[in-house]
Simulated scan of single mutants.
Amino acid sequence: MSITKTNPVPPSWKDFAKASSDLLGKDYPIQGTTLEVKTQAPNGVTFKVLGIRDTKSGNINGDLEAKFTDRKNGFALTQAWSTANVLRNHVELENHIAKGLKLELISSLLPDKQAKNALFASTYKQPGVHTRQHLDLFKGPTFTADAVVGKDGFLAGAEAAYDVKGGKVSRYNLAAGYQAPEYAITLQGLGNLSTYSASYYHRVNADIEAGARATYDSKSATADNRVNLEVGTKTYLDDAAFVKAKINSAGIFCLGYTQALRPGVKASLGLALDTAKLASAENSAVAHKVGASLNFEA
Rank of each mutant, 00 (worst) to 15 (best):
R132L: 06
G100M: 08
P111D: 14
E104M: 15
F143Y: 07
G157K: 09
G128L: 04
H96T: 13
L103F: 06
K151G: 01
K102T: 15
L119E: 11
I106D: 15
L135S: 03
D152P: 00
G157Y: 13
K113L: 07
L109S: 07
L119I: 10
P141Y: 02
I106T: 14
L103H: 09
G128M: 11
K125L: 10
F154R: 04
L155E: 10
K139W: 00
H130P: 03
Q126W: 04
D112R: 11
G140F: 02
T142Y: 01
L103G: 13
D112C: 05
G150I: 10
K151I: 00
V148L: 01
A156F: 07
K151T: 03
A121S: 14
A121T: 11
R132S: 07
K99Q: 14
V149G: 06
G128P: 15
Q126G: 08
L155W: 08
L109E: 04
D136S: 09
A121D: 08
G157E: 05
D146M: 05
D112H: 13
G140L: 01
A118Q: 12
L119Q: 10
Q133W: 03
I106M: 10
H130C: 11
D136I: 02
G100R: 09
Q114K: 10
I106N: 14
F154G: 03
N95C: 09
A147Y: 03
G140R: 00
A145F: 03
T144M: 03
E104Q: 14
L137K: 04
T144V: 06
V148G: 03
K125W: 04
A158G: 12
L109T: 01
E104A: 14
T142R: 03
H130F: 06
P141K: 02
I97K: 02
S107I: 01
T123H: 09
A121C: 12
K151N: 04
N95I: 05
V129R: 02
F154C: 02
T142D: 00
R132D: 11
G128S: 11
K116E: 08
H96R: 09
H96E: 04
E104W: 01
P141M: 00
V129C: 01
P141E: 01
I97Q: 03
G128E: 13
L109M: 06
S122M: 14
D136A: 11
D152Q: 01
E104F: 00
L103R: 14
